[in-house]
Design a protein around this nucleic acid. Sequence first.
DNA 1: CGGCCCATTGACAGGCATCAAGTCCGGTGG
DNA 2: CCACCGGACTTGATGCCTGTCAATGGGCCG
Lengths: 211, 211
Amino acid sequence: MYSPASRSPIQSLAIAMPADAGEVLFLEGDACEHVYELRDGIARGVSISPDGERQVTAFFFAGDQIGLPVAHTYRFTAEAVTSLHYVRHSRHRWNEALITSCRDEGRLLPSICAEQDPIFRRGIIIGRNGVLVRICAFLVSIVDRLPQIDGQLDFPLTQLDIAAYLATTPETVCRGFRQLREAGVISMPRRDRMLIRAPARLQAIASGAAI
Amino acid sequence: MYSPASRSPIQSLAIAMPADAGEVLFLEGDACEHVYELRDGIARGVSISPDGERQVTAFFFAGDQIGLPVAHTYRFTAEAVTSLHYVRHSRHRWNEALITSCRDEGRLLPSICAEQDPIFRRGIIIGRNGVLVRICAFLVSIVDRLPQIDGQLDFPLTQLDIAAYLATTPETVCRGFRQLREAGVISMPRRDRMLIRAPARLQAIASGAAI
DNA sequence: CGGCCCATTGACAGGCATCAAGTCCGGTGG
DNA sequence: CCACCGGACTTGATGCCTGTCAATGGGCCG
């Protein structure tokens, strides 16, 4: 579902910076001075509603560019989900690279797509009713971006984050996972490991089929 | 809430094309060959879920640019909500103008913001629970983009469209409007006219306050 | 005038949020 | 090595919200 990770517009040999899980990369509302390129690990975009409700607007993976200067300020806070590595590009250098690439390829860089697409897709996912449908659509959209470890998916997302992404509660996410487990669609040998046993059925449920 | 309408990157004197209400400007999945600039009227972005559910991903107003080549194909269908006028820019000319503007102003054009921002905002709005909160947040986000007629807002959106935008049903939207009317927050002298009687309360409810 | 689409209202059931309690697991310190 | 502890996950009970179905009303246009 995800478009393949786009190459950096900047041929940079910069050393990647590390960040621990939970660390903030940039804050919603801050001026866009840098574009962050994820080298490895997973990050999340977080937005706080006026009444304090926390929403995860997107998950980002290795290769994604985050914090594009699409406005004057960042529209969401970026936090590390796992420990990760990133490279920071100054807005100006990133812009120049964009112009060059724009002129050469005749269209906007895939990197813009890479940030805007997940946000767009989340809107579509949470716009559908039925939590199970949302969970499956979500899984379908990220499975091919999760690293594999001996045949299993590395699944470091907490149900709290997934709930905040799917506009529901951790309890409901847990129940949804249980349904999928009991139906033999997935299995989770460990808390942070997942195995998709029936990809076709997962896809079908995401498309509205009954469980 | 909306950023002010951005000027066109192209100093074009082209004649604006008309479109009737309901008319399709471009289809989801088609190759992005043109950028559409709305001169007047209202348009909607529509996306059909795999199971046939129709979602309105955004409403667009005069001055907005729609169909940016952020990917190879349009990610949503654009339809006229009211009769409207638009100007079509070829992708290549639009791109050149973007490059120029990018170089001069040192950042991405506001026009990208103008399309991506409503999409982002919808995600935040429908990610909140409580239909009344969503309705109010929606109203707050569009009131200053609707044209006024002798002190009243011109409100040509059907409850069907609003429901498809807010990820709910027309009946629920209707009940929400009734609550707001009975609470004196809004009034609707006619089907397509609205008066915000208590903007502060509208804002408060959108922020999570009880009615 | 008639037909059609949209808005409205009511009744009802079901899904999901909420609250509460208990379990599991990894990490930490003795 | 083991006990402890905190956070995440799990599970159950309950009530409300809201989706669904059905019927009516109302405005617009042909």
